[in-house]
């Protein structure tokens, strides 16, 4: 598991062929697998890029057992 860095994150976006509404869930699964959590700045960034509200993304992520967000990743 890596600690979060922007370069790896950008590469992940490239790997999925750019962020879209359609692959957001899959992408966040990859973020979780890579960094062991979904940091707040990722939520902010994907919310901006997909047009979903941050609340919706937090709402979804916190309902799954396997996602870690917010305080759980030291934010």
């Amino acid at each position: 598991m890596k600690t979060f860095d922007m370069q790896t994150y950008q590469n992940l976006i490239k790997d999925v062929g750019g962020l879209t509404v359609e692959n957001l869930f899959v992408f966040l699964c990859k973020v979780q697998e890579t960094f062991g959590c979904v940091p707040n700045e990722v939520v902010r960034d994907v919310a901006m890029k997909t047009g979903f509200s941050e609340a919706r993304i937090y709402g979804a992520l916190t309902s799954y057992r396997e996602f870690k967000v917010g305080r759980e990743c030291g934010d």
Partner: peptide, 18 residues
């Protein structure tokens, strides 16, 4: 992501819709 309910088609769709 390890939830039984995601096997139900509409729950599965919800999860893909974030």
């Amino acid at each position: 992501k390890g939830l039984y309910i995601t096997g139900e088609e509409l729950a599965l769709i919800s999860s893909l819709e974030m």
